[in-house]
Design a protein around this nucleic acid. Structure first.
Lengths: 234, 234
DNA sequence: TATATCTATTTGTATAGTCAAAAGCGGAGC
DNA sequence: GCTCCGCTTTTGACTATACAAATAGATATA
């Protein structure tokens, strides 16, 4: 393994493990060069690669800092409903419909590839954009991965936003489907039973452990996912 | 603009313009270094960045080559129905339902941000996977961007696959929605009218010019998009 | 003929330096 | 107080060079 790869993965690991938190300053190039007994060029190559991936932010004179965790925006321009809604200039609020701590059932455990008795926080949350129901969020948070969630009421901050601030992101899986609204969903979203809904399932990992699993169901006529992708310039 | 950025964009432009085609060999590092009057390190930095983005492939002793164009697989694991279906081990065939050359209408022109009188090839195509209708593809190909499409019948190769082989990709926009099947769509896909369908719209550009615009409609119960994304290692 | 070995080419990694650009900071002058 | 100037730190770009690793192709050997 080359030196700059070692530096890259060492720094990446410290960030993903939460050892270095967003905003923390990373040792300056000549310090890392001394630590790894290599030239500044080699350190620079590793840090530049991390910066390109958005893991860190570099500024002359002030140094390099751990960036705020966020799902890769080049992947899909959806991550957190409240942020998205506000960016688009809409009024957003939410209601927690249910919140309980329990253990994972057999079927779900298999679905998540997690042990059946794992303790989880189960949340159900309704998002309201511009006064109309916009999405139902059904979420499971693994309590061994995010113990702080046990004390959080989510009264003033939606779960998705809270998690993004708490947990550095390392891997995510998305599934997008079209489904017909069942009776319960239709009632909550104030739509007709059988209407087309867009369902997004996302499972997020940190260092191989599941952090959260969420299914977000939108009324099909009121929502769409959009993203522009291109090979970014240097 | 720095030297390595100039090299990067020069090579990128030659590839995206079709000047250098997939498989073509790129001048070796010392040739480019002489051309740009810089050191080999600088050339190396530019070419490595291109390799990381998947624009070129580098191999010791043999040199660097233009990679085959393909939609960034980290973005979304869908690009071309026939390739996807075959990779997943399904039997795939397709039928061209309509094919005509015409000029862009006012509404559509606005939607695509293209001049209203632009000549286009309009295609409608049904995809059948494992014997069942899987998707309707409604496609517009801009004939000034892809003149070769005028002579192509698409009898033996589906339009999506053909385009991927012809046109290098530079930018794409996706919109995913859930829609209820209208009468025509329902009849073609052999589903009930009003059933939930997953609609994917993709517009692809090359050097700022629209290449193609396509809407693919899947039966909601038979299809989903999935993708795993993580910060890739060096 | 088939296989092993050598050689030349090309990329990959690293060094030790230079100079430049950005930007925070303190002090001089008003 | 405020503005401007120069100092210093840190990153950014680049050079010239060195050696290593991979490997296609030529050559030698069994």
């Amino acid at each position: 393994m080359s030196i700059y790869q070692r530096i890259f993965t060492d720094v990446e690991t410290k960030i993903l493990s939460g050892d270095w938190r967003p905003g923390d300053r990373i040792p300056v190039e000549h310090e890392l060069a001394a630590e790894y007994r290599c030239s500044r060029m080699t350190v620079s190559k590793a840090l530049s690669a991390l910066a390109e991936r958005g893991m860190i932010v570099r500024r002359r004179k002030t140094g390099s800092f751990v960036a705020s965790p966020q799902i890769d925006r080049t992947v899909m321009d959806i991550q957190d409903i409240s942020t998205e809604a506000e960016l688009a200039g809409h009024e957003h609020r939410f209601e927690i419909l249910a919140r309980k701590v329990e253990r994972l059932g057999e079927t779900e455990a298999q679905q998540l590839s997690e042990p059946a008795d794992a303790e989880v926080l189960r949340l159900q949350c309704l998002h309201i954009v511009d006064g109309r129901p916009n999405a139902i969020e059904r979420r499971i948070i693994m309590l061994d991965a995010v113990p702080r969630a046990r004390e959080e009421s989510f009264a003033s901050i939606p779960p998705g936003k809270w998690l993004l601030e708490q947990v550095p992101w390392s891997k995510a899986k998305h599934v997008i489907r079209a489904v017909s609204a069942d009776t319960v969903t239709a009632r909550i979203l104030q739509i007709e039973r059988g209407e087309a809904c867009l369902s997004l399932i996302r499972q997020t990992w940190q260092n191989g452990r599941t952090v959260t699993y969420v299914e977000i169901t939108h009324p099909g006529d009121r929502f769409q996912f959009a993203g522009t992708f291109h090979p970014t310039a240097i």
